[in-house]
Design a protein around this nucleic acid. Structure first.
Lengths: 193, 193
DNA sequence: GTGATGCTATAACGTCGTTATTTCAAGTGT
DNA sequence: ACACTTGAAATAACGACGTTATAGCATCAC
């Protein structure tokens, strides 16, 4: 789809993404974005229909980064190790883009609801993970349907990442180690046996 | 702690909780809460220091509901089944109080950060779950430390609940069945042997 | 009775998302 | 060349937000 966008539109998105990354979702105001992009507030309305239109692009950008982050490492001949590495990349990318992540999953922008197109992008990100899981089931290493395995795997990973971002850590333990332990348990539970 | 609270203070909290439950976090404005409680906006400032003080009470209320929801069913002689039932109660309570849940974990109120006291309450809720897990490890049914098991279990459960609340469901599958499948995998991965 | 104290409501300030109005340059017809 | 329309831009305004300052008004000490 990749809608064509004029120079000003690109500046707006860049300014919005920068604001979100550096100051968080509450810095995403129409006036501040417009000022940073060097135009008036109306520039956002004529091009994106309003604040939510811009946020929707950031939502999509977040999923793109997530997908790219997981595509980074190439498949080897060990599908389970690949999947595990993909999960680690998911966490790394989410933490490196935590403010985007909170817009995507945490409701950080009040009353924002993603467009259908963006929702589909979220599902496409899911499909990328399914492919990694399918290699494990195809090799007879995991039990169950790739779709169903992926959705529970994703949910579990998402929850751990989310707690890490919002800073809920009852044991004051190392989040990285906790994440690895969780993957151990999940993979053990999924293993054919 | 349970700070003593005058009649007006109780009315404010009740009105705020009602607003959050029925209309969501974005309906939580100082003016609306004050109007619903029958006082002026200053009533919130003199008693709670501002909006965040009230939200902090709702945050705590959410954790109390979560703890109460899990305490509902009494322990039997099957600790794993008890734990599983506790997890299901966690999900039920979270879904029944989804707007509270989004305040607690989702950053639904911009720039709100829970007080130290409320943070400790969150950890206390965690401890309740630890006790259920400890019964499983004590009986030799689970492998590992109860603390560490609980934090990964909680993270996984939290993620699934969160995705359910925000409506991300790539497979359009039944969330209840998905949740049960996830528990199957987790418990299998945790089982001794 | 009078001044001080503390709680209350009202009003004000700056910011928010959004909409209405105005401005202004480019294009069109004659 | 000039009046006129058109479309996109900036500016101004509206109502609501969190918060702070101000003013009203009880209650108490003396």
């Amino acid at each position: 789809m990749a809608r064509t966008r004029d120079e000003q539109g690109r500046r707006i998105l860049e300014a919005a993404s920068e604001l979100l990354s550096t100051e968080g979702a509450s810095a995403l105001s129409v006036r501040r974005i417009a000022a940073a992009a060097g135009c008036s507030t109306m520039g956002l309305y004529s091009r994106f229909g309003g604040k939510d239109g811009v946020v929707d692009e950031l939502y999509a950008e977040g999923f793109e980064r997530l997908v790219d982050g997981m595509k980074a490492n190439l498949p080897t001949d060990d599908p389970v190790a690949d999947l595990r590495r993909g999960a680690a990349c998911y966490r790394d990318t989410a933490l490196a883009n935590s403010t985007h992540y909170m817009v995507m999953f945490g409701g950080a922008v009040p009353d924002f609801v993603p467009s259908d197109a963006s929702h589909e992008l979220a599902h496409a990100a899911f499909d990328g993970l399914v492919a990694k899981v399918a290699r494990c089931t195809a090799a007879g290493l995991f039990e169950g349907s790739p779709d169903q395995i992926t959705e529970l795997l994703w949910g579990a990973i998402h929850g751990l990442v989310m707690l890490e971002i919002v800073g809920i850590n009852p044991l004051m333990s190392d989040p990285g180690a906790r994440f690895e332990r969780a993957l151990d348990v999940l993979f053990r539970g999924l293993a054919r046996g």
